[in-house]
């Protein structure tokens, strides 16, 4: 029975989380990372640095390796070679997905993935308890402090009025915000956001841009996005991925003038947009 109890606890956190050491101004390091799937080089010696508090957009054609890069950072895929560090000290390649989530890396999926049968409030409660020991999950009540934190996040993502509604009945944009709220309540240092505005109305896009901009500073935010208008509205610094490598980095205006970038990616989109 005592084994069971320790198992119960192991379902929660192993050790208290140390604060991430970003003293050199860089929060996330990817160095010479490569991964191959069945002979196809999805990521090819990719090196990328995300600054502390930075808002970075990553663009690139389909198959450029954007999602694979996210998978590597969040522990879903282990690379064949390279180093991935969170701050100065944390080797992300030694951790699995839950451990990486707990040290402060939140991942927003492309498709809104909120738990539809639960209310907005319950979704946030679920996210808040992510780092709890199992014993802490054996309760049906919220403490006052937890309630306040949930309310603060609800306000931040603009879902205060929706708190008691089932997540399944929310509009598409609201679901995306709720998912971002679920990440925020875990107080991550780094937020990885995969195509947040796909399928959103212009008004929703504008709100999302505002939200993401407001997060930079307190958090580092990495946004993978196809929509150029949206990228222009949020990021000062953009990385272009192509065939698993960084093709170019810079301000969006400069990149749009870069012939290499135009050739692989921006050309069509630019002409169309």
């Amino acid at each position: 029975m005592s084994e069971l109890i320790s198992e119960l606890d192991a379902a929660g956190m192993h050790t208290p989380v140390e604060p991430v050491d970003a003293s050199h101004g860089i929060l996330l390091y990817l160095e010479e990372v490569s991964v191959t799937f069945d002979g196809f080089k999805a990521i090819d010696k990719l090196s990328l640095y995300i600054g502390d508090g930075e808002l970075r957009c990553i663009i690139g054609p389909n198959g450029a390796g954007k999602t694979t890069m996210m998978d590597i950072i969040t522990g879903k895929t282990k690379p064949d070679a390279g180093r991935v560090f969170f701050g100065q000290t944390v080797d992300l390649l030694k951790l699995d997905e839950p451990a990486i989530a707990r040290i402060g890396i939140g991942r927003k999926f492309q498709k809104p993935t909120v738990i539809e049968p639960l209310t907005v409030l319950e979704n946030l409660e679920l996210a808040m308890s992510g780092a709890k020991r199992l014993r802490g999950l054996m309760t049906t009540r919220l403490t006052g402090a937890e309630h306040d934190r949930i309310a603060a996040v609800l306000e931040q993502v603009g879902l205060l009025e929706q708190a008691r509604r089932r997540a399944g009945v929310l509009a598409h944009g609201q679901k995306q915000w709720l998912e971002i709220g679920m990440l925020l309540i875990q107080e991550p240092r780094l937020l990885l956001v995969d195509e947040p505005v796909a399928g959103m109305t212009p008004a929703e896009m504008e709100r999302t841009a505002e939200l993401l901009r407001s997060l930079a500073g307190a958090h580092s935010v990495v946004v993978v996005e196809h929509d150029m208008g949206f990228v222009r509205s949020i990021a000062d610094w953009v990385t272009v991925l192509h065939q698993g490598r960084v093709l170019a980095e810079g301000a969006l205006e400069d990149l749009q003038a870069d012939p290499r970038v135009i050739e692989v990616y921006l050309g069509d989109d630019h002409a169309a947009g």
């Binding site: 069971l4 192991a10 379902a11 839950p98 999926f109 679920l126 996210a127 199992l134």
Partner: peptide, 16 residues
Amino acid sequence: PRARFLGYRVERIKAL
């Protein structure tokens, strides 16, 4: 995946 990326050790909870 959402549960896992929120920090839950899904396989342990399932086993229990």
